[in-house]
Amino acid sequence: MIPEQIALTELERDALTEIVNIGVSRAASSLRKMIGEQVLLSVPSIEVVSHHRAARLISEREVADLIAVRQDFTGPFSGRALLIFPETNSLELVRAVTGGELSAAEVVEMEQEALAETGNVILNSCLATMANMLKRSLTMTIPEVLRGDGAKLFEVDEAGSEEGLVLFLYIDFAVRMRDIRGYIAMLMDIPSLATLKELLDEFIASVVGDDA
């Protein structure tokens, strides 16, 4: 059950989806420069869920092992950002990013580096855009590449005592005619989500004020 003080209203969810879509379109533009090919990215849905629910959502959709790029962020709201792919998709992404001319062994060898770089571009674009549009700034750590299932990535412990919630975003990628699906997740504690909700309300008020 999401506490009422941090449950997003429809308007807040729409505003956040719009902000994140601007962020991923900037990421797509950066990736296009990196790989010299059209990159399409979109975020069709955003949900605020518990860590357990996030792990379950991803395990219902993905049977393959998962690979993720993780970066922590700090500022007026803090947390941990993850860019998650099914492992099979991650190799497709590396092939796209590296031009598709590498042998299978070379792709595996370069996977870590290419994923960290791609994750850095996408997560930084999303978070920097969010911060910028909400008139705040965030600091991010360097990217780390992790492997594991949803429970590991979402830090679900057996006792079920994890604090905080997950902002869970499904993303569609199309790179070099390859369909690559993935997820962005932001693990945040309740005070950070409450701050984000307040900042979204300020953002909505400024936009409505401009339109009035």
Rank of each mutant, 00 (worst) to 15 (best):
S206I: 08
Q38I: 10
D149Y: 08
G164V: 07
T141F: 11
P191V: 00
D149V: 09
M186D: 02
K197F: 10
G150W: 02
A68P: 03
D210V: 05
M1W: 01
L93N: 06
D65H: 09
T195Q: 05
V145L: 14
T195C: 01
G209M: 12
P3S: 13
L40F: 07
A28H: 03
S29T: 14
V107H: 01
K33P: 01
V63M: 14
N120G: 12
S78C: 13
G160S: 07
A96W: 01
E117F: 11
C126G: 06
L199A: 10
I6E: 06
A81Q: 11
V48H: 12
S59Y: 07
L123F: 10
L123R: 08
S90Q: 01
E117M: 15
L165P: 00
Y183K: 05
V49W: 00
F154Y: 11
T141D: 09
N21R: 00
V24T: 08
L196S: 06
K197T: 05
L31M: 04
P76N: 08
D211N: 14
L16W: 05
A131W: 02
L146E: 09
E162C: 02
L169K: 03
A205F: 15
M186I: 07
V48A: 10
V208E: 14
F168Q: 13
D210A: 11
A212L: 11
H51E: 06
E111K: 11
A96N: 02
V97A: 08
R26F: 01
G182Q: 06
V63N: 11
T17D: 04
I35T: 12
E92H: 05
D157V: 05
